[in-house]
Amino acid sequence: MKRRTFWDRFYHRLFALAAGLCVLVLLGIFGMLLFNGFRFFESVSLWSFLGSSNWNPSAWGKATYGIGAMLWSTLLVSLGAMVLAVPLGIGTAAYLSEVAPGRVRDWIKPAIELLAAVPSVVVGFIGIVVIAPIISWIFGLSNGLNALNGSILLAVMALPTIISVAEEAIRSVPNTYKEGAYALGANSWTTLITVTLPACTSGLIAATMLGMGRVIGETMTVLMATGNANAMPHGFFDPVRTITATVAIEMGEVPYGTTHFYGLYALGAILFIITLIINLLAEGIAAKFRKQGR
């Protein structure tokens, strides 16, 4: 008896420790980003960091640290990816949960899950050798490595997340709603659009936001496929360099402890804050819909 309570307590503590460790790691990362980021602002003002779009840390004499072009590039590529991925993802989820016969579903679902397992460097490679020539051919550009390329690739990478979360949401809509709609003479399309999807809006928003989180933080693919021109983009056909790509490119060659070094931490902190805001928004919207729904 005594022995058993000992082990019981032991495992209880062990698992609590594991859970606590996760939180600790998260706080540690955030703390490190903030701490090193603040060091950056000792020598560069927040205003010139956020207000300028000129990032040139290794310029002779007068280095500039403006995040504008990168920030806009990140948002542009991410928004483009979401515009492509959200309708496609929700459509696929609706097909899988409402229309597809069991056997088709059993094939498509694992295929989509496998899509998530493709290494991002492979996706980037496909962007260079397949998507880029197609883009330059269709739009008559000299070079297909641009924001559009990144958006397409990131859309593909966000799809598995969006599809699986959205499918779960659609599946969770009570059958009684659908029966009610059918009993009033609605066909399956009308039922889907006017009853089923609105009934799981919070889940669909969560799917979108999770996809967005995946997209904003993605590094290798955009680094390879978007052309990496650190200038303010004017549209999807311009080459861009995202925040993530900048950190990845410059971290390897920056001298330790310099303003430039701390600047990369500041970029990381900004990225972290963006994803944090997205997650909080998603939670807020989901909670609001949940309250309305029940």
């Binding site: 029966e179 009993a183 009853v195």
Partner: peptide
């Protein structure tokens, strides 16, 4: 189904 309406066991108004 437009000629034959139905009310279910558990009330199922749409959200």
């Amino acid at each position: 189904r437009r000629k034959v309406g139905m009310v279910f066991q558990r009330p199922n108004p749409f959200p």
